[in-house]
Each structure stands twice: as structure tokens, then as C-alpha cells.
Design a protein around this nucleic acid. Structure first.
Lengths: 133, 133
DNA sequence: AATTATTGTAAGGTAAACCTAACATTATGT
DNA sequence: ACATAATGTTAGGTTTACCTTACAATAATT
């Protein structure tokens, strides 16, 4: 299983590539406030796991396996974000921050249940603002 | 801030004491499948933080500060457990396991919102079993 | 009481994930 | 083209949270 750090980096790599932008090691370092050398090591590890193709300055490419993995993580993130923000009506920044942390620890089956419940609540306008007596 | 490990150990210490039972370092080691020496270190750290009074074989006592802290963690745990198990209708063991992980990373304000929403859902019989089309 | 088992501690080790500093390489600006 | 800046890598270090092994102290069994 991927560590929280590797998941975060892969997530950023995929999102950036999806946006048709290039991503460099230094960008990851800046985004997460870690050193370039730490990123260097992490990218080698992601490459070892066949999640990215890393050729230093030549760029970072994501593999099919990497895309699958990144999508999973982003999916988890989005389920949590949506639930926190749209159902519980938690401030977006805080919702996002908490989604970022919980996405690495919550089991798939829990996320699945949250997703279904969240969709139901949104459809029926049940949320944290109209549920207070 | 306490680490996940220290929070877990303190939680167990408090729960055991609440049950009028004594708790020893070896019990913590067994519960979390870690070595006695790791527990030994952790207990010294908890004592340094004034959360417990630790005197080796003479026993482990919890301080007022420790009780306050333990209650906070257990409260978080219970909010999550209740939401997962009673609202989302997730299997108790899985609900508990996930509560255990998320309690260490979720912000207080998120837990607060989950609690309110959870109570509302329970009161109105809105749950993961009657919300599927 | 003597033996055996249990418990706690100390010493030293490991792996992960970070760090800084120094260096090499590649881009960029003039 | 050259100087400067940006980027990636290497080497070596730190911290955290574990570990094992060995030993000391206490408790339990016979």
C-alpha cells in the first residue's frame, strides 16, 4: 500500500497532467513544503512501483497503473469533500483539508457508504444547515 | 499534539481504568501488537506530558489532564462510530476500525458537524438502509 | 523457599520520511 | 555566449516509532 506522502504526490501529478500542464519535482516540493531531495527520492519510489515514469529533468509521466491509483485516491477525496462541503456544509477549505487526511485512512467500503448516503442527502436536500432544530 | 500511537494508548488506559481494572504496560503491548519496550518508552512520554503517572510495576494512573485528553479522543471515536454504524449502517467491526483511524486526523469542527448531523439522522430514521432507491 | 514465569527497562538497531549542504546539470536573461 | 538562476541528485544527518536481545526485578507456582 502507498504511504500518505506518495498518495499525495501521485494525486498532484495526475491532477496537473489532467490539466495539460507539466509537473516538475520542484513543484511537488513547493506544494507540500518539502525539500527537492525528498521529492527526488519519492519520485524514484513511485517509479519503482510503476506508477510514474521519471526521467529527471525530462519530466514526469504517469503510467496506466498510476492513473488507476490516482483516480482511486481522487475519488475518495471527492466523496469526502462533497459530503463535508455539500451535506455537512463545512467551509470548503476545511472540508478539503480534512478530506486530504481522511482519504488516506478510510476503507473503500466506508467511502462507498458515504457516497451513497451523500448522494441521497443532496438529492433530498438534507444537509447540515436545515437539520438544526 | 499527541501522535496517533500515544492517543491510542491513552485511550486504552482511560477505558480500562473506567472499567475499574488495572492496566499494565504489557497489556498495551498485547492490545496493539507492539513490544513491551516500545510501550515502556511511550508511557514515559505520556508521563512527560503529564497525561499519566507511571511508576513501572506500581501501575499506571491517569491525571486530570490525561482524562480530559482521553475523553476528547473517545468522544471523537464515538461520534464516528455512531455515524458509521447507526447512520451509514456499516458493520460494527469495520465502523470501529475506521473510527479508530479517522479520530486521529479529523478536525474538531468536522466531528462537531458529523455529530449534529448524525443525531438528526437517527432521530428521523434517515440511514444507509432506507436511502437506497 | 526455590524455581519458573512474567514484567519492565536498557542498549543498540532499523526503516521511513524527512532534512541540509554541496554539487552538477540544464535553462534563462542579457 | 556567458553569467546567473533553477533544478535535480548525492551524501550524510535527524527524528520518530518501532524492533530485538539481554538483563533485572517482581510475582506466581509447586
Amino acid at each position: 500500500m502507498l504511504t500518505k506522502g506518495l498518495e499525495d504526490y501521485l494525486e498532484l501529478i495526475y491532477k496537473t497532467i489532467l490539466n495539460n500542464k507539466n509537473i516538475k519535482a520542484v513543484d511537488i516540493a513547493n506544494e507540500f513544503n518539502i525539500s527537492r531531495s525528498s521529492v527526488s527520492e519519492a519520485l524514484i519510489r513511485l517509479a519503482d512501483l510503476d506508477l510514474i515514469i521519471y526521467e529527471g529533468r525530462k519530466g514526469i509521466k504517469i503510467t496506466k497503473k498510476g492513473i488507476t491509483e490516482a483516480k482511486k485516491i481522487i475519488n475518495k477525496h471527492n466523496i469526502l469533500l462533497k459530503f463535508f462541503n455539500e451535506v455537512l456544509k463545512i467551509d470548503y477549505q476545511i472540508a478539503n483539508k480534512n478530506a486530504c487526511k481522511i482519504e488516506h485512512v478510510a476503507d473503500d467500503c466506508v467511502l462507498e457508504k458515504i457516497k451513497n448516503f451523500s448522494d441521497f442527502c443532496i438529492k433530498n436536500n438534507i444537509n447540515g444547515e436545515n437539520t438544526i432544530d
